[in-house]
Design a protein around this nucleic acid. Structure first.
Lengths: 345, 345
DNA sequence: GTGAAAGCGCTAACAG
DNA sequence: CTGTTAGCGCTTTCAC
C-alpha cells in the first residue's frame, strides 16, 4: 500500500536523459536553463510526484530559508495580527516560518530559542516573555551572526539589534490624559513587570500626564500584576473595596481591564460614572464588554509586515541591520464608553 | 566577528582521536558505546559548542521527528489549550512541532498541507477549516502512509483515519434542553457551515431536544453564518429587530454569542429575561460579558494530549492507527447567568 | 566497543 | 545552455 520510494532529481534526470544538475537548475528557476527543458522537467516532476528534499537542499546550501518567531502568547488579537503580517511578507519572499510561544515564561523562551537555534533558522523574530531578564539565550545567534529582531516587548539595553515598537510612553500619556480630561482625579495604573519596556514606558507616560496636569503621583496607585486571569479578578475585587474609590483606571491590557470592569460591576460600581477605564491593545473583548472599552490600538499586521520585511531585507543583504536601531510605529487611543463621562456633542 | 565555521562530529572525533561513527553513537545514546567515551564526547561537544545538524540527520534516517499541526485559528481558548496538550506530549516524546493556521480558508489549508508534506512531517494533526469540502490535499499523506489524525473539526466520511471529537450532538441537545427548561419556547440556533461535523451535529442535537420537548422545528430558526465578527454584529442586530422576538439563542461559539448579546443589549433587549443565550467553547470572553455566558466547555488540553499520544504511539508502532476510528471526549454545559431565568436555589 | 566506508538528495564550482 | 564532480554532516551496515 505504502508508496515508499521517494522520487529524486535523479529519477527525473534519467527519464529525460539529462543531468541531475540541470534538473536542479530547472526546478530552481535558474536563468541558465532553456525554457523547453525547464518545461519538460516540471512536467516530469509533476508526473512522478516529485517533492524536493528540503534537508538535502538545506544541508547543501548553508541556510534554511526559515524564520523563527517567538511570541509570549499566540492567543491575543495583537499577536495574531502581527503573525499574519509576518507570514504574508515571509511567504511572498519564499521564507518558511517556525512559530513558538513562550507562554510568558522565561524558561520556556530559553527552550524555544534553543530549538530555533538547532533548527538553524536564518533569522529570529522575538517578543519577550513577561519575566525574561537575562538575554543570554540569544547569544548563540549573535555569535553566529544570525540576525535577531525584537518587536513590542523588547530589551533596549541590548546593543546592535533592531527593535520595532510603538511609543508606549506617548500611548500611556494619552490614555492618562484622556482620563484626566474626563474629570478623573485619582487614577490607578495597573500594569505588568516593570522591567519590561512596554510596561515601564506606559508608566512613564502615566506619570508625565499626571505631572502635566498638576496631579500628584503616588507609588501606591501603581499596581504591578502578573496580568493573568486570576489576578485580574482579584485585583478588580480589591479595587472595588478601596476607600475612597479611585475614579479612573488605566490598565495595561484589555483582557485584564475587561475582567476588572466585570468585578467592579459585580460590586455595583458604575463604569464609567464611578470609575472610568482605559485598556490597551484593542482586543476583541474590548468591543464586547459593557460598556465598550476605551483602548489603545496598534497596528499589529503592519508591525508584523515591517518586522519581517526588515529581517528579510537584511538577510538578502539589502540593509545592514545594525544601522537601524529602533523603529517606532504609530498607535492611537480609541475612545469608547468605558471612559466617557461627559459625552461630547 | 561572525563565528562562521560549524562544529561537526568530525571535529569532536579528531579532538578525541576516535571515529566520527563513535561520536555519532555517543551523541545518540547508542548502547554499544562505553560510558567513559560517551562522557568524553559529551564534554568535548559542549566545549566546542557543537549543535547537531538536523538536516544531515534527517537526510540520513528517513524521518524527521516532526509532527505537523493544522488548525483553523490559533486565536481561541480551545485551540490554544489543544496545542498546549499536543506540545506537552510531543516534547516529552522528543518530537518537534510545526504549527500552522488555515484561517478558516480551505485554500490556505491546502497550502499548509502541501508545506507540511514538503517538510516531511512524520505525522499530521488536523482540525479542518470552515469551508473545506474536498479532502484531496491529504491524499499525498495517505499515499505515502503518513498518518493523519483529525480532531474536533473532522470529516467522518473519510475512511481509515482516526478522529478525536466531542459528542457535539449531545452537547447541542443539552444546551437546547437547558434553554427549554428555562422556559424558552422559540429558540434560534446560530451556527456555521453545516457540512462541518461540529455544526451539523450540534444542529441535530438542537432538533432532537426540540422534538423531545414537543416544540416545533422551523428551518428559519437556524441561521447559518460565517461566524466572523462582522456577521456577528449584523446577525445580532437582525435578531433584535425580529417580531416576535425569539426567547432563546443557542450559538455555536462564544465570541459570536458575546457579540450578539452586545448587539441585543444595545437595542434594549434584556438577557436573559427577554432572550436567554447559550454559547459554545468556554472562551475567556464568556466570563467577561455581562451577564456571563452559559456555554459548553470541552477539555482542550486533554484532547491535545490524547491526539498527540495517539499519533506518536502509532508512529512508534505501538498501536495500529486504522483500528481505532473515533474517540469521543467528554464535554459539559456550564450554566451562567446569560440563560438563567428562574434562578435555582 | 570501535572503525571504515558508503550514501541520504541536493547544489555549486568548474569546464565545456 | 548543460554535464561532471565533489561534497554538505550524519548514520549505519559490516567488519574487526
Amino acid at each position: 500500500m505504502k508508496d515508499t520510494r521517494e522520487v529524486t532529481i535523479y529519477d527525473i534526470a534519467r527519464q529525460l536523459h539529462i543531468s541531475p544538475a540541470t534538473v536542479s537548475r530547472g526546478l530552481n528557476n535558474h536563468p541558465a536553463v532553456s525554457k523547453k527543458t525547464r518545461q519538460k522537467i516540471l512536467e516530469v516532476a509533476q508526473a512522478l510526484g516529485y517533492r524536493s528534499n528540503t534537508f538535502a537542499s538545506n544541508l547543501r546550501r548553508q541556510h534554511t530559508n526559515t524564520l523563527g518567531v517567538i511570541v509570549p502568547k499566540l492567543n491575543s488579537h495583537f499577536v495574531s495580527s502581527v503573525l499574519a503580517g509576518i507570514e504574508k511578507v515571509a511567504n511572498e519572499a519564499g521564507y518558511n516560518l517556525i512559530i513558538s510561544q513562550s507562554l510568558e515564561s522565561a524558561q520556556k523562551e530559553v527552550a524555544n530559542a534553543n530549538t530555533m537555534f538547532k533548527s538553524r533558522v536564518d533569522g529570529l523574530i522575538v517578543s519577550l516573555a513577561f519575566d525574561t531578564q537575562d538575554l543570554s539565550h540569544f547569544n548563540p545567534f549573535f555569535k553566529k551572526g544570525i540576525p535577531v529582531i525584537f518587536f513590542d516587548r523588547v530589551e533596549q539595553s541590548l546593543p546592535s539589534s533592531t527593535h520595532i515598537i510603538i511609543d508606549n510612553e506617548k500611548a500611556g500619556y494619552q490614555a492618562t490624559e484622556h482620563l484626566i480630561q474626563q474629570g478623573c482625579r485619582h487614577i490607578l495604573h495597573i500594569t505588568g513587570n516593570l522591567t519590561r519596556n512596554v510596561y515601564a514606558d506606559r508608566l512613564k507616560g502615566y506619570q508625565e500626564a499626571l505631572k502635566a496636569y498638576g496631579l500628584p503621583f503616588h507609588e501606591t496607585d501603581v499596581i504591578v500584576s502578573m496580568l493573568d486571569e486570576k489576578s485580574a479578578w482579584e485585583t478588580g475585587r480589591q479595587i472595588a473595596n478601596m476607600h475612597p474609590l479611585p475614579d479612573g483606571l488605566f490598565v495595561a491590557n484589555d483582557t485584564f481591564a475587561a475582567i476588572c470592569m466585570q468585578a467592579l460591576k459585580e460590586k455595583g460600581i458604575r463604569v464609567p460614572d464611578d470609575i472610568a477605564i482605559v485598556g490597551f491593545n484593542d482586543d476583541l473583548v474590548s468591543r464586547v464588554v459593557e460598556p465598550p472599552l476605551t483602548t489603545v490600538h496598534y497596528p499589529g499586521q503592519e508591525m508584523g509586515e515591517l518586522v519581517a520585511r526588515h529581517l528579510i531585507n537584511h538577510l538578502q543583504g539589502t540593509v545592514p541591520l545594525t544601522h537601524t536601531h529602533t523603529i517606532i510605529i504609530h498607535s492611537e487611543l480609541i475612545v469608547r464608553q468605558s471612559s466617557l463621562r461627559n459625552p461630547q456633542r
